[in-house]
Design a protein around this nucleic acid. Sequence first.
DNA 1: ATATTGTGTGACCATAAGGTCACATGACCA
DNA 2: TGGTCATGTGACCTTATGGTCACACAATAT
Lengths: 215, 215
Amino acid sequence: MPKQTFLNLPPKKRALIENIAMKEFGEYGYDLASVNRIVSGSGIAKGSFYQYFEDKKDLFMHLLNQTMELKLSYLSPIAFEPQAHDFFTLLRELFLSGLRFALNNPERAKIGEWLMRNQEHEIFIELMDESTSVSSDFYLTLLKEAEKKGEIRKGLDLEYISAMLTNLSVSLVNYVYKKTGVVFSNSKDMMMKHVDAMIDLIKFGLINQGGQSDD
Amino acid sequence: MPKQTFLNLPPKKRALIENIAMKEFGEYGYDLASVNRIVSGSGIAKGSFYQYFEDKKDLFMHLLNQTMELKLSYLSPIAFEPQAHDFFTLLRELFLSGLRFALNNPERAKIGEWLMRNQEHEIFIELMDESTSVSSDFYLTLLKEAEKKGEIRKGLDLEYISAMLTNLSVSLVNYVYKKTGVVFSNSKDMMMKHVDAMIDLIKFGLINQGGQSDD
DNA sequence: ATATTGTGTGACCATAAGGTCACATGACCA
DNA sequence: TGGTCATGTGACCTTATGGTCACACAATAT
């Protein structure tokens, strides 16, 4: 947690530091990110930095917490009552909210992505210890429910599939980035198109057997 | 390319250096890997290192080239005549050979994986410029062929799917690592089981509609 | 006026990185 | 024996890192 000193700062200054730091971590990842660049970039003295944060990790964790909170705020209400909808509807909603979050907050999305790519990093492990439920755990719950309800096939390795879905969600974001160049007018239509294609794929697979649906 | 001096080395010494370096890059990735640790680990002087290689990148590229060659040697003959088999058979073969390679050469597999995870790194970009065809390009070719032959559905975003398949192949390896703890007796049966499950998933998707096959 | 307190500051610390270089060593040839 | 050449060596260079600390400054309380 940042020190009180940081919380006392005028919001503009706080936001500046956070933004500069986001960019730094987004570009370089945790280990290669430089505190020196962050302080010089945000125009504060090195000494001040260490009056705001315990250390580099403290800042990073702060950004992560902020980001997770923000991302949660993107979740559609549908996701909070998983019992009431079928698996693929929920999945669609989750992917869609993830995509919306990422397109509206590309800088923040980058550090979440970094975390997912570095699940062996001490930072990730530490985070897992103190915090509960990662997205892949959530998927696992949904999958088990879906299997019980007969919405998906039996005998699938749900643990693996949940990891896969986390993965797919990230790569979907990357793909849309690359395709659209992160234009700000990310029309709802465009996003829905990509997400629907993805869900359809997960649902019916690649094979040509006329399985297309239109729900 | 390593300098002649390195090629003149007794094979044992050469192999030692390569092995130590593999571990270093596998554990830390390119940027965080330390030449100092490599030289002290393999018991040579720093000066010697720079008589063997131009620089750190030179060594890394050398290892990458070796690794790609080795991986290629794992490809089943089937993969060299893509016209003669249907898409899912080929895919199965590719996944299987990838898995076999990774399980038999865990250290080497790690750096290939690092490369795939860091496609924005200057190293990757440089490699793309000089070398041809990455795996995802190969998938794309196969997918186009399969679409033409009607083996897969029409209207799919093949470019995205090829990226996805690359991804899946990597995560399959990771999963099997985690599941089996990289025991040496990786029975063919066990590998086939995992690969078949994966292919089945890609082929038919998650939905419960009795699509299971047995080819 | 004087102390106390919260904040800002940048020179400075130890450590480590990638890379260089003057020199040592030893094998071969004259 | 003396000279040449490929190879081995580690002290040393510059640059950067994360983090510390003695001090400066301003505001408040006494």
